[in-house]
């Protein structure tokens, strides 16, 4: 019985042998329950061990396997072959990032931005362990929970045309994570994050294209987080101008 197969056109870039990227065509078996990642793993295991790409959990929680599938940013572990079959599938590295090799991008820029927004609980005074846990009600959790679902997969950066045009833009995930902590009742770090968020390359460069929220695999809605950050940033600005600042 003939088994069906599917064609993948995969972006190749090997700096030690070429200066420009090329595309290599592979054939992988077609299974109804396979995802693009399964096809890539088949290619690497059985056809061409030199193909390089990132992956880990294969279930949409680690954020490692983000790539462009037919021009759309996707987690390859969540992109089913059956949604493309029988047409060939074009697999490229995540857009708007430099390519190290094949499907592996350089994510240093995102890592720096993530660190800049200080995505952790900031306290004026740390509570000693002897005083017990920080208590948080379900309602307080609800205010930031959606933004906490980010898996740092960077699909939103690949979708954002502003980031594509100007990599100095801090970007969707970083702002969503800053909001996640700013809204957390345990956090006292709004002032610490304000400078990074309210600078020109912070929230203000966003033009609410909203494609980041469309591609987000965890429904974080970074576009919403950014607009909400603009509102609170604007309120902060008016307060700082209209009301004298005593001790800050």
């Amino acid at each position: 019985m003939a088994k069906s197969s599917i064609t993948l056109e995969v972006f190749r870039y090997r700096p030690e042998i070429e200066q420009e990227p090329t595309f290599q065509t592979y054939t992988a078996p077609y299974h109804e329950d396979w995802v693009v990642l399964d096809a890539l793993n088949y290619i690497k295991d059985e056809v061409d061990g030199s193909l390089s790409y990132r992956w880990s959990c294969r279930m949409g929680v680690c954020g490692s396997c983000g790539m462009m599938v037919n021009g759309e940013p996707k987690l390859t572990c969540a992109a089913f072959l059956k949604d493309y079959y029988p047409a060939p599938i074009r697999v490229e590295p995540l857009a708007n990032f430099p390519v190290e090799r094949d499907l592996v991008i350089n994510m240093d820029d995102f890592m720096h931005k993530l660190k800049d927004v200080q995505p952790w609980i900031i306290r004026d005074q740390e509570k000693p362990v002897s005083e017990g846990e920080y208590l948080q009600s379900p309602a307080e959790l609800a205010t930031y929970k959606q933004f906490s679902m980010c898996i740092n997969c960077m699909l939103c950066y690949a979708a954002c045309p502003v980031y594509g045009l100007d990599p100095s833009f801090i970007g969707p995930a970083a702002i969503a994570l800053a909001q996640r902590y700013n809204l957390d009742s345990r956090d006292q770090g709004q002032d610490a994050r304000r400078e990074v968020i309210s600078q020109h390359e912070g929230v203000w460069q966003c033009t609410f294209v909203s494609e980041c929220s469309v591609v987000c695999p965890k429904d974080v809605d970074p576009a919403g987080a950014i607009q909400q950050a603009k509102v609170s940033g604007a309120i902060d600005w008016f307060k700082s101008v209209l009301m004298p600042r005593g001790s800050q």
Binding site: S198, W204, V231, A234, D236, W237, F238
Partner: peptide
Amino acid sequence: MPKSGEAFWWSLFSA
């Protein structure tokens, strides 16, 4: 003094 006046223009845009 706030770092960026962008908030002001955005407020006008938004209103």
